[in-house]
């Protein structure tokens, strides 16, 4: 079965482990991900901060190409891209002025007959069934499932039922034997687009997320967005600065865990790309001393 795939800049740039794990997970579930030809950046926060029509036209070009390729569904693993693509499609459907003006701008025909899936939609629809009997004892760890903003908000756009307290990742992880904690920060903002211009804000917002997860006994934070993951993982220096202590709880992509459950190795899932290391092999998880030492030196290396 073939499904369209919009990687977005992050998966080809700062989050190669997300792309690698997603592709192998899809393969294990017998799904072929077909990349949208010659796709372009969705414009992210910068475009919608500066110009509304630009922020519709950039994602719409991608959707129009996908439509032309005969794809009915597109999976968009980055929550920020997902939100922008969904916004563009929604505006196209609801706003006549957009429908009238879009075509000459993107120079491609677009009918709006395409369905956009975020990574959770994709996993629920196409991977969940293949996860029968995949419970593994090595996964007896506590996860803090972190959704961030754009997978659930604005609810009007995402159609999410429990936007303040979603339980979708929890249900998926349960399938492979991972229990999740109940916590308060699953849909709080990580600081997202201010990562570079106001790193201190990311340190503060992400710091609160990390602290709550840790305080409630989580062993890891599980994410479904490359922006969230990079803020929680790569920005650990800024976070630890804010918290005034070293905090080594790892932040990992949900697809990396599911890949492991399918029998791929930690190398296949590119665990080495994570700044704060994590390993499930030989039952050493984060209790291993060497592992902890490595974390310390790594976290120190992260300058802000």
């Amino acid at each position: 079965m073939k499904i369209g795939y919009f990687p977005g800049c992050s998966l080809h740039g700062t989050a190669p482990e997300y792309e690698a794990s997603l592709k192998l997970v899809a393969k294990a579930a017998d799904i072929e991900l077909v990349e949208i030809e010659d796709w372009n950046c969705c414009g992210a926060t910068a475009a919608h901060s500066m110009n509304r029509m630009l922020s519709i036209a950039l994602p719409a070009r991608n959707l129009a190409i996908a439509e032309k390729m005969g794809l009915e569904e597109v999976v968009v693993p980055c929550a920020a891209c997902y939100s922008r693509l969904l916004f563009a499609l929604n505006e196209f459907k609801l706003d006549e002025k957009v429908r009238m003006n879009l075509q000459p701008i993107i120079e491609t025909e677009f009918k709006g007959n395409i369905k956009i899936l975020n990574v959770l939609d994709f996993l629920e629809k196409y991977v969940m069934d293949a996860l029968k009997n995949k419970v593994d004892d090595k996964f007896k760890k506590k996860a803090a499932c972190y959704y961030g903003c754009l997978l659930v908000r604005p609810p009007k756009l995402t159609n999410s039922e429990r936007w303040d307290d979603p339980l979708r990742m929890e249900a998926i992880l349960k399938k492979i034997g991972i229990d999740s904690i109940d916590w308060s920060f699953k849909t709080e903002c990580c600081g997202a687009g201010l990562s570079i211009a106001r790193t201190d804000i990311v340190g503060k917002l992400s710091g609160k997320i990390i602290e709550d997860a840790k305080d409630r006994g989580a062993d890891m934070i599980v994410t479904a967005c490359p922006m969230c993951q990079s803020n929680l993982d790569m920005r650990r220096g800024a976070i630890n600065n804010y918290l005034k202590k070293d905090n080594n709880i790892p932040a990992i992509f949900i697809t990396q865990l599911i890949g492991l459950a399918f029998g791929y190795s930690e190398k296949d899932m590119q665990f080495d790309k994570l700044f704060v290391p994590i390993s499930f092999s030989n039952n050493n998880f984060s209790n291993n001393n060497d592992n902890l030492k490595m974390q310390k030196s790594k976290v120190k290396e992260v300058k802000v």
């Binding site: 080809h12 190669p16 010659d38």
Partner: peptide, 24 residues
């Protein structure tokens, strides 16, 4: 960590992107 690339990825039809900026 293999997370920073030194060669930019480029859309083949980049004139289309410039047009989008121009028209918006």
């Amino acid at each position: 960590h293999g997370k920073l690339k030194f060669i930019p990825a480029k859309v083949k039809n980049s004139s289309q992107i410039k047009e989008i900026f121009q028209k918006t």
